[in-house]
């Protein structure tokens, strides 16, 4: 029973990582940049949802919607103001800008909401739980796993079937050629950021429903873990991000439960290293072609 409990907790945490990792992996696949500020967009999303629930008295669904809209606007603004001027620059310059953006978001949150941790209102989601024999599953866990599946299916369909999805795949394949074919690269990248940031808002709410402590640094560690998950699964690949995220969550929970609580993070990172050594581009990543 404890094993099943851990497995479900792992799947739930992994689903959160997976949703965050999608944001990293899509932006990486299309804009070829590591968006280090992504973890902080999650934090902003969680704060907005917190305000919606706590101060404005919105029903949960509406609060999440407001938070998604806020994050989408934020993501597109960040991309337009900070990353777009650097489209041609060396990738390290973009990385540093993203780090600067991460500091900026954290400190803005610090000024608006203060350093004291806020406890995220979780009563709406945690009060109900389902009993399956001796197993006790909270609704939050179920919703998280369910949301993850829905997001994965719709994103896969979106990239495979819609015009915008095709444009995204083109840009990620070859930006120059895509531009020549009449694809608006800037708009495609903006849409990618919009989707990634909206997902970040959902991830923020789910994260804080399971771990209800909200402070300006809430997003950084899950952000790094999700980034790890994206690389683990093969960065740039949507199913890879899903697989990487879920596996990472399960490994983390099992590591903490059966090996050592303090070393949970170390185990996660050690597994990542081993996987990358065996498969240097991640589980589902495409091998790097080398041209001479």
């Amino acid at each position: 029973m404890i094993f099943l409990d851990n497995l479900i907790n792992g799947l739930s945490l992994g689903s959160i990582y997976a949703i965050i990792a999608l944001g990293y992996t899509m932006v990486y696949g299309i804009a070829k940049m590591l968006n280090f500020a992504h973890g902080d967009v999650i934090m902003i999303g969680a704060y907005v949802a917190f305000c919606g629930l706590q101060y404005w008295g919105l029903p949960p669904v509406l609060a999440i919607a407001v938070s998604m809209i806020a994050c989408t606007v934020l993501g597109v603004t960040i991309e337009g103001l900070a990353y777009r001027p650097l489209r041609q620059a060396a990738s390290l310059a973009v990385l540093i800008t993203a780090i600067g953006m991460s500091y900026l978001l954290q400190n803005t949150a610090l000024m608006i909401w203060g350093a004291n941790p806020k406890s995220f209102p979780t009563t709406f989601i945690n009060s109900v739980s389902i009993r399956l024999g001796r197993l006790n599953i909270s609704i939050a866990t179920l919703i998280t796993i369910f949301a993850n599946i829905v997001i994965m299916v719709s994103l896969t369909l979106f990239t495979a079937k819609t015009k915008m999805g095709k444009a995204m795949r083109c840009v990620s394949e070859d930006r120059g050629a895509a531009e020549l074919m009449g694809i608006n690269v800037n708009r495609t990248i903006s849409v990618t950021f919009a989707i990634g940031s909206a997902l970040a808002a959902i991830a923020g709410v789910l994260l804080c429903s399971s771990y209800p402590i909200l402070q300006p640094t809430t997003g950084s560690m899950p952000g790094i873990k999700a980034f790890t998950a994206a690389v683990f699964g093969g960065i740039g690949s949507i199913p890879g991000a899903m697989l990487g995220g879920v596996l990472l969550g399960v490994i983390e929970i099992f590591g903490k439960a059966y090996i050592s609580t303090e070393l949970g993070d170390a185990i996660v990172f050690a597994v990542l290293i081993v996987v990358l050594l065996v498969k240097p581009t991640g589980l589902l990543g495409r091998p790097i072609r080398e041209k001479v």
Binding site: V231, L263, A266, L272, I273, L276, L277, P280, I288
Partner: peptide
């Protein structure tokens, strides 16, 4: 030895991972 077998962003993430592992180990 393991890190320098990798390239680019993969190498970056593994150095990050090692940094975090070292921090976790000295913690206990």
């Amino acid at each position: 030895i393991p890190v320098l077998r990798l390239r680019g962003d993969y190498l970056a993430i593994v150095t990050l991972a090692f940094g975090e592992i070292i921090r976790n180990l000295v913690n206990v």
